[in-house]
């Protein structure tokens, strides 16, 4: 547990010192969403209809964009090698790094989402569910993405490859995240969708650190 906290604090401190990185993710999120009114036209009805989907897709892409740096910088400067050699279980390292990733990218996205929902003319009744769904969904995105980020270490054109690998695995989170908000907006119960999102989160919490650690091990071995 102390190891977890130590690595978490180290990663958080690193990202705060670099400062702009997590801010850039939020900026991308905002700009990507703002593009849609230009693309589909400014009719409030259409925007309100697609708001949930647009916000979720943009959040997905924003969270994916920052993934590449999850292990890459540590891999390049050699600190990942030291982490692997420590008598710390690698699963804890992965879990700590994912938590740091979520705190620096997932949380700002959740904070920015209501503002974008207002811009897209979304009905106020969906805000609470949107935030709740993002809060349950984005950790899963970080966890699934950690597998991809660990697998591309040392690959050519890792970033493009990462999107090809990770986006198909993101689809279940996207489906239930959007349907929770749509259900709330349509006056149905959002609870079942949120429960499925929680289930996905629990499954990814249970599995992804192990898979990510296995991927890191094979990346370090060769």
């Amino acid at each position: 547990m102390t190891n977890f906290v130590t690595i978490l604090r180290r990663d958080l401190r690193l990202s705060f010192r670099q400062g702009m990185d997590s801010l850039m993710v939020v900026m991308f999120f905002v700009i990507a969403v703002v593009l849609f009114p230009f693309g589909v036209g400014p009719e409030p009805n259409i925007l309100a209809r697609i708001a949930a989907g647009v916000i979720w897709v943009a959040a997905l892409l924003a969270s994916m964009l920052s993934l590449e740096r999850l292990f890459q910088t540590d891999y390049e400067d050699g600190s990942l090698e030291i982490l692997v050699l420590q008598p710390v279980s690698l699963e804890v390292v992965v879990a700590a790094k994912v938590t740091a990733h979520w705190l620096t990218t997932g949380l700002p996205l959740i904070a920015a989402a209501p503002l974008l929902a207002v811009l897209l003319n979304m009905d106020a009744g969906g805000f609470a569910i949107l935030i709740l769904a993002l809060a349950l969904g984005t950790p899963s995105l970080s966890l699934i993405g950690a597998i991809g980020a660990a697998l591309i270490l040392g690959a050519r054109r890792g970033g493009v490859l990462l999107s090809l690998m990770v986006l198909p695995l993101y689809i279940p989170v996207l489906i239930f995240g959007v349907s929770a908000v749509d259900a709330a907006l349509g006056g149905f119960a959002a609870r079942p969708h949120l429960l499925i999102l929680s289930g996905l989160l629990l499954a990814t919490v249970a599995l992804c650190p192990w898979v990510g650690a296995a991927a890191l091990r094979q990346a370090m071995r060769s």
Binding site: L151, I152, Q218
Partner: peptide, 27 residues
């Protein structure tokens, strides 16, 4: 497609095989 892309993305073919094997199991 992701499996095939990851498999061919490494200069060392063995790395590509291991990495893509993990991806295939996840998928």
């Amino acid at each position: 497609l992701g499996y095939m892309a990851l498999n061919g993305a490494f200069d060392d073919p063995e790395r590509g095989q291991k990495a893509s094997a993990i991806l295939a199991l996840v998928g």
